[in-house]
Design a binder for these strands. Structure first.
Length: 499
RNA sequence: GGCCGGUUCGUCUAGUGGUUAGGACGCGAGAUUCUCAUUCUUGAAACAGGGGUUCAAUUCCCCUACUGGCUACCA
């Protein structure tokens, strides 16, 4: 039999790591078994559901290259949006009423809580009303123009057993299960329990990966299946993903939104890799997995039962790895994007913006120094913003005597003049070649003058970039070009002289 | 409170009735390097506690503790 999976989020918040993990595991299982996966929007909470959150789900899935076989209005069981299927739920609810598996409840309000924080649940006071009482209530409701909710007639005793694909066998006594949950709300909308069961059945869903927070509702769902005389799908209750505080990730607090992480410069392959390893592992050594690997290797029996705390430091490490692995051209593209955002006109207006080679050289200079794409632009800052001389000189005094530059500037200037190319050179290999030549000459120079090569380079670094830690300064020198380098050195010299 | 789940370095995890309990992130130290990084070497760091079963338990069973989830006309 063909496996049919589904991801059924409620659009009441932006997608976070936890939701994405549920989606990913459904997707991996489907693709591993050559099955199908459906996206179904569970927007039965009309007050909290929003279109923008549906868009967010779609965008995040797309960004991570997760595709659905059926979704929205598209597929044999369309629509896949629960708010457009209310008649279906009402119809099935009526069936349960006819079978005496459900009943109208007129006495819901104010009956559900004691005044302490101990929750007792509904008292089932409408479960066994006499015909007269029902009539009276019906009349009352009609006058007020209200609709009664429909409740499921849960068994009062006996056991319920779930054979889960992950947590294995779990057993409940029906008397411990939430008493007679509501199936149809006053607004005519189904609750999760009804809609979910009806849709999973109607859409022929065979396997369900869902978060473990659903475990305690499983008896309700299982009983619903039996009331309808349907076969339930195989359930896989995934361990929870916790935030760094050890608490459940809540979409309402926007923690670790997938969109947000993408915006911060985490690559899609990073997120997939990191999320897949939340509660799943392949062996004791492998760390890096592409989507193709995951689909091939995915194995339900390797899923852990215990919850996992999501660790941002490890995410950084994964991202760093994938940035190091990226092709030069691809990184260059990201750099252009970043710089456009960050520097606007001063980048776009420069000759560098259109110079693919320049961007690629930058890629090589920054790639080992960043964890996220967002960290790129500060490292390239000095290309687009001329450093402040005064500020540089201040740094000088902190680091070492500014006299160094004063004394050595002529020699350095000579070397730069004679060795840097006349016209701009931005091809990375060429840049390195020029840098190497300057280095050789500079080393000889330093040896003759008995001054430290490191210090000379540091002085150049500070003068040219306004910063004491940057990518290798010699390639930067070449990229900046002879004119800019000479101008800057001269200006600095003048400034020091004038002090 | 009740029900249900979980518990191996700080974090993600591997693993087994007999192991020096393995790896990864992070952290410490050292080496390389023009700074910062990268890279390399290396160090510290864990079986929640108590009872059983057993020649032997981190591994199997029970209890306790801790932790999380659910206990909604939210999903």
């Amino acid at each position: 039999m063909k496996h049919r999976l589904r991801y059924a989020p409620s659009p009441t918040g932006t997608q976070h790591i936890g939701g994405m993990r549920t989606l990913l595991f459904n997707y991996l299982f489907a693709r591993h078994n050559k099955g199908n996966i459906v996206l179904r929007i569970e927007d039965t909470d009309t007050s909290r559901s929003k279109q923008e959150y549906i868009d967010d789900i779609l965008a995040c899935a797309k960004a991570l290259s997760i595709s659905f076989d059926e979704l929205l209005q598209d597929g044999p069981y369309a629509p896949y949006i629960q708010s457009q299927r209310t008649d279906i739920y009402q119809h099935h609810c009526q069936k349960l009423l006819d079978l005496d598996k459900a009943y109208y409840c007129y006495t819901s309000q104010n009956r559900q809580y004691e005044d302490s924080d101990v929750r007792l649940g509904y008292d089932r006071s409408s479960r066994d009303l006499s015909k007269d009482e029902i009539k009276r209530y019906q009349e009352e409701y009609r006058k007020k123009n209200m609709r009664p909710v429909v409740r499921l007639k849960m068994p009062l005793e006996g056991n319920c057993i779930l054979h889960d694909g992950i947590v294995e066998t779990v057993q409940w006594n029906y008397k411990d299960v939430s008493p007679d949950p509501i199936l149809l709300k006053q607004d005519g909308m189904p609750t999760y329990h009804l809609a979910n069961v009806v849709d999973d059945h109607l859409m022929n869903i065979t396997d369900v990966f869902r978060s473990q927070e659903w475990l305690s509702s499983s008896p309700i769902h299982l009983f619903l299946y039996s009331a309808f005389e349907w076969t339930p799908p195989k359930y896989y209750h995934l361990p929870l993903v916790l935030g760094e505080d050890g608490k459940k990730l809540s979409k309402r607090y926007g923690a670790m939104g997938v969109h947000e992480l993408l915006k911060k410069g985490y690559l899609p392959q990073t997120l997939i890799n990191a999320i897949a390893l939340l509660g799943w592992s392949y062996d004791e050594r492998s760390e890096f997995f592409t989507m193709e690997h995951l689909i091939r290797l995915f194995d339900v029996s390797a899923i852990s039962k215990s919850p996992a705390v999501f660790n941002m430091k490890k995410l950084d490490w994964f991202n760093q790895h994938y940035i190091q692995e990226m092709e030069r051209g691809a990184l260059a593209l990201l750099i252009r994007e970043q710089c456009e955002q960050q520097y606007g006109k001063s980048f776009i207006g420069s000759s560098w913006a259109q110079d693919e080679k320049f961007l690629q050289s930058c890629a090589e200079l920054v790639r080992s120094r960043i964890h996220t794409v967002q960290e790129i632009s500060p490292l390239l800052d000095f290309f687009f913003k001329i450093p402040n001389i005064e500020h540089s000189i201040d740094m000088f005094q902190e680091k070492f005597s500014r006299n160094l530059v004063k004394m050595q500037y002529k020699g350095i200037n000579d070397i730069v003049s004679s060795l840097l190319p006349e016209c701009a050179v931005t091809d990375y290999e060429e840049v390195l070649a020029y840098a190497k030549r300057v280095e050789t000459e500079l080393r000889r120079f330093c040896q003759e003058r008995q001054c430290s090569f490191g210090k000379v380079l540091m002085s150049l670094r500070i003068v040219l970039t306004g910063s004491s830690n940057t990518p290798p300064i010699l390639p930067i020198l070449v990229l900046l070009g002879k004119k800019r380098v000479k101008d800057t050195i001269n200006k600095t010299k003048d400034y020091i002289d004038a002090l």
